[in-house]
């Protein structure tokens, strides 16, 4: 697609979509969103970019190959689940740590394995879909 307007707009759109995907990921625990949706939006962002500038350019922008991203995500999700096991809980039990307090109300923010797991989901969806789409773009 050799459209100057599309190419120029795509760069802007990709950045916006990508930031939006992270936003959807992070707000997912309380409002509609989450790793699946965030990952899908992120994938759409890079697909738009690859349609505008070609898959080679898009791969360069991504820096890491999408298959690696997907496997990394799977590994992160697994670690988040194993973490509970190391802490003595059944596998994949959510682990919560309060920073600056001892409950949700008093703490400034929390560290938890649930968000880590959701990040893993995000990366798997993003990487999986991008690897598929790029393969189709390059081979067809």
């Amino acid at each position: 697609m050799n459209s100057v307007i599309f190419t120029a707009a795509a760069r802007l759109l990709v950045a916006l979509l990508f930031v939006f995907s992270l936003f959807m990921l992070l707000r997912g625990h309380h409002l509609p969103g989450g790793g699946f949706i965030g990952g899908l939006i992120g994938a759409v962002a890079f697909i738009v970019y690859s349609l505008a500038c070609g898959p080679a350019e898009a791969r360069k922008a991504l820096r890491i190959t999408p298959e690696v991203i997907a496997m990394l995500g799977l590994g992160i999700a697994l670690l988040a689940g194993l973490f509970a096991f190391f802490m003595g809980d059944p596998l994949f039990t959510g682990q919560w740590y309060w920073v600056g307090g001892d409950s949700y109300e008093t703490a400034a923010f929390s560290l938890n394995s649930v968000l880590v797991f959701d990040i893993g989901v995000y990366l798997v969806v993003l990487g999986g879909i991008l690897s598929l789409t790029y393969a189709f773009e390059e081979e067809t």
Partner: peptide, 8 residues
């Protein structure tokens, strides 16, 4: 996607 790749 997998089926499509197979078909392709």
């Amino acid at each position: 996607a997998f089926t499509l790749a197979l078909a392709f």
